[in-house]
Structures are given as C-alpha cells and as structure tokens.
Computed example of a mutant assay.
Amino acid sequence: MSDSIIKEKSFELAVCGVNFYKYLVADKKEFVMSKQFLRSVTSVGANVSEVVNAQSKADFIHKLSISQKECDETMYWLELLKETEYISENDFKSIHEKSNVVLKIIRSIIITTKKNL
C-alpha cells in the first residue's frame, strides 16, 4: 500500500483538513468542534498508514475499519459545522466530497479483503 491511492487521498484529505481547521480557528473563532474535526480528519490517514504494518488480514481490516470510523466522524463534524452556520454550503461540499471519496475507497478495500479471506 506504500504507493496506493488510499494513502494519497487520505493524506490530501488531512492536509485539506488542517488548513480548514486553521481557517475555523482564525476566522470563525470556533475552537471546540474544529478541534474534534482536526482529530478525526488527521486520524483517517494515520490509520491508513498503519495498515502497511498489519500483522494479518484481520489486523489489516481492523485498522482500515478504524480509519472508516474516523472518516465517518469527520463527516459528522462537517455536517454539524454547516448546520450551526460556522461554514458555508460551498466550504462544506468541498471537504465533504473529499471525505466521501476516501470513505468509499476504504469501504471498497474492506469489502474486497473480507471476500478474499
């Protein structure tokens, strides 16, 4: 997985998320939800990176499942930030779409791996 699309996409999502967090803190003065968002969005890629060192297929699936949960959580915080009017619909769509792409790739990898067990 060293040169995989999921590593690339999850890293891009993390970079986008960090920059979005900086915007939320500096411009919107939002500190609580933005911190939760930052933790989850950066955790997606961190857990994907750990997959490389999985000790078994079960461990591989487990680590990717954690990444999937973190991606779901990222999307939750984005939805909450939008509904509480901290972010615009356009800001929401941009990052939400990236998160959704990563989530679909992770789910696909998990499903395929389970089929091959």
Rank of each mutant, 00 (worst) to 15 (best):
K69F: 09
L38F: 05
E73M: 10
E97D: 15
N53Y: 09
K28Y: 01
D72T: 06
E97K: 09
Q36Y: 02
T112Q: 14
V25E: 04
V51H: 05
E30D: 04
K35N: 10
N19A: 08
S4H: 03
T113A: 15
S67W: 13
F37M: 06
I66E: 14
K93S: 15
S56W: 08
N90M: 15
K22D: 10
A26K: 08
Y86P: 01
H62I: 08
S43T: 04
E97A: 15
I66F: 14
E70F: 11
M75D: 02
V25P: 00
D3F: 14
S65R: 07
Q36D: 07
N116K: 07
K28A: 08
K22G: 00
F20T: 01
K35D: 10
F60H: 07
N100S: 12
V51A: 15
N90P: 01
S99P: 00
T42I: 12
F60G: 05
S43V: 10
A58K: 14
L81W: 03
G45R: 06
V102G: 01
F60M: 12
V18N: 04
T113P: 00
M1E: 08
D72R: 11
E89Y: 09
M75R: 03
Y23P: 00
K29L: 12
K63A: 12
T84M: 14
A54L: 07
T112D: 13
V44M: 13
A26T: 02
K114T: 02
I61E: 12
L13Q: 03
F60I: 13
K63W: 11
D27N: 08
E83M: 14
V25N: 02
N19G: 06
I95V: 13
M1P: 00
